[in-house]
Nucleic acid binder design. Sequence first.
DNA 1: GTAATTGCAAAAGATTTGCCCCATT
DNA 2: AATGGGGCAAATCTTTTGCAATTAC
Lengths: 137, 137
Amino acid sequence: MEDTEKKSRNTRQRGVILEILKESCAHPTAEAVYHQARKSLPNISLGTVYRNLNVLRGQGLVREIRPAGSSSSRFDGNCLPHAHFYCTECRTMIDLPLPASLQENVRDVEAVGSVSAMDLQMVGTCARCAPPVPQLL
Amino acid sequence: MEDTEKKSRNTRQRGVILEILKESCAHPTAEAVYHQARKSLPNISLGTVYRNLNVLRGQGLVREIRPAGSSSSRFDGNCLPHAHFYCTECRTMIDLPLPASLQENVRDVEAVGSVSAMDLQMVGTCARCAPPVPQLL
DNA sequence: GTAATTGCAAAAGATTTGCCCCATT
DNA sequence: AATGGGGCAAATCTTTTGCAATTAC
């Protein structure tokens, strides 16, 4: 008795939402997914988007990210382990590699039971917003 | 002309809030800070707590953390670099060491301009909620 | 046919803000 | 005295939820 989940249906809405997230590398907000989805499904509602994002997250097909300086979540269709960089200027979020060694970070901490997820976020300004070596001439 | 910040005053409220965060290792929510603060300042309002948390964050005296599975922010009076572990069962948040090597993670990514903050969160269950080696007898 | 899912709108939860008075400098 | 800050309540923003109708299986 470990099949607590109820069966899910393949609705057009859910398919479109998942497709949007798989195509995009922009880590869109729910609102952004909603606007994108309206292009193919003019009647889809924001509530449906949120509900599906939650279902897809539960199925491990989508990941939710909470950017450090922002009030709204971003969603990521790439569930392979990776880190993020968030530009506080233009609010762009890009993928970064995730050092495999990070798990060791926890190995000796006795208060930690088991780790199910890891979230590494670097925050700052991207190269376009604040070039590391400003051109002086 | 680089002193854009306005001068801040030492109010009893702000002092109490900062003190609470410095004393605590619980990474309390704004609401929790509010309840704690009421013990010494029975009339303090939640709005004042939020306003001061934002001021203190701006001054670099307090850090805001957005736990992966929770809707409310936590606040941390320890601004030395460190990571966090968040137990999704009991919602406890504990400090972890932050590997100094992490900065290298970004060194070769050309889209990254400058990094101002780093946020590493491990999510799972703590030892008390799900002992790593369950006692069978 | 049954149950999951939708759209809509209302509700909830967290945080911010306007306003007027008070307190710090 | 000048003005930053406080208290209160209303407003805002993001996300969730109840409900009746619809749709996938």
